[in-house]
Design a protein around this nucleic acid. Structure first.
Lengths: 229, 229
DNA sequence: CCTTGTTAGATTGTCGACAATCTGCTTGTC
DNA sequence: GACAAGCAGATTGTCGACAATCTAACAAGG
């Protein structure tokens, strides 16, 4: 028999689609931090009953991008400067670990995929599609996690990614500036192809720190605005 | 006004109680890995409708201790040797990070709490309450995460802990031996009180590796049994 | 004998209605 | 005018019933 590996078929439950819709709305910033999600209104808009919607919201609460208060409502998480710092410092540690574990596993397929994802980022950048740019950049960085061969690590990173994507989206939205045209991932990709693991680990920190500064400035702005109330 | 900090009142939804019940059943091994959770049966046993039960199950799926297949059912996760290895290797990295972040924050309250939790472990050990012994030991180790002042890290560890607790419980159940009477945490606690951070970090790895060997042997047994089918 | 189509039963997914709870306003009292 | 009690509306939590889907047993055909 021919040995074909089929990919799993798509989830066909309403719940799964609702999760995808809501997640996207949150991670692109269409739903703003702190905003309340009215079950009745959303279920009517989606033409769905409240049961699958509520189940979907439970999932996103556990995923860490929604927060729920009994009998009061479910809200998009608030974003503070500390949250962003915390997420990033953990991300640095995980990056280092992921690179270490991936290093010996690198092969041609890895390099091919690395190039493909890098290309996707560049394309999104050229198209000035900021949302897609964030998505593809995170997917590029996610490659080392997929190759680290540690399912728990991968899960952890995916959770973290949700937040990072949200933070970046908010940041982009707030400054509303044209996207950096140049390619900031060139060195990162080159180092992952190279022979010096330590250098790659070091760069992962420094490179990320770059965007981090801007992000942090945005978060500090949020803090100030909040303290005025 | 007197400055009293009240603890948050208990969750009063059925959903929250169901989550607690199910989690406990899973983490103590009463629900075995791979076992299917029949919604109708469980909802009848709990005298609850399926709606809050299903929402609770969604949460536990996101928490990583249940897995769901549309229209097929929701199951307790399977445990493989690789899962245990993965969880542990990540735990080591996180421990190191947590110790680093906690180190400068240590004060009298920290040491007091450390002692209190250590005492709880010893008491559970004396009482030969294996379930409680696992719980308290993990709480002892969780202290550094609570003091690291990084909410994302804490969340991550709590997720990881669910699995670790489950693994240990299964292990205990399988071998069905009397609990180790002596105290294996003495050195760990002493080092956390000491001045040498590196030593504490190193010990966190080695100490955990100790129990790890046994756990791994158990997991390998699982593998063998599974491959016979 | 093996494969394919069919069907009955069980189980999950979804729906609409009802109950419990919260919020803000109004009312009454001082 | 300040404040507590109580009421009305809106929203979340829960329930029981129905629809969609899966599984396993069985029959039909090659």
């Amino acid at each position: 028999m021919a040995k074909l590996d089929f990919s799993p078929i798509a989830d066909t439950t309403r719940r799964a689609e609702i999760v995808a819709l809501l997640r996207r709305a949150i991670l692109t910033g269409q739903l703003e931090p702190g905003q309340k999600l009215n079950e009745l209104r959303i279920s009517e808009q989606m033409r769905v009953s409240r049961a699958p919607l509520r189940e979907a919201m439970r999932e996103l609460v556990q995923e860490g991008i929604l927060t729920s208060i009994p009998y009061a409502g479910t809200f998009v998480i608030e974003v503070t400067a500390k949250d962003i710092i915390d997420a990033y410092s953990l991300n640095q540690v995980l990056d280092e670990f992921a690179i270490e574990r991936t290093w010996s596993q690198r092969d041609q397929r890895f390099f091919d995929e690395l190039g493909r994802r890098h290309e996707a980022v560049k394309q999104a950048t050229r198209a000035k599609d900021t949302t897609r740019q964030i998505e593809t950049a995170l997917q590029l960085h996610g490659l080392i996690y997929e190759w680290a061969d540690n399912s728990v690590l991968l899960e952890t990173w995916q959770r973290l990614t949700s937040r990072l994507q949200m933070y970046f989206a908010l940041h982009q939205r707030a400054r509303n500036e044209p996207v950096p045209a140049e390619d900031v991932h060139e060195t990162y990709v080159a180092l992952l192809k190279g022979a010096d693991m330590r250098a790659a680990q070091r760069h992962a920190r420094e490179h990320i720190d770059l965007d981090f500064e801007e992000l942090l400035a945005y978060a500090r702005g949020l803090e100030k605005r909040a303290s005025k109330n």
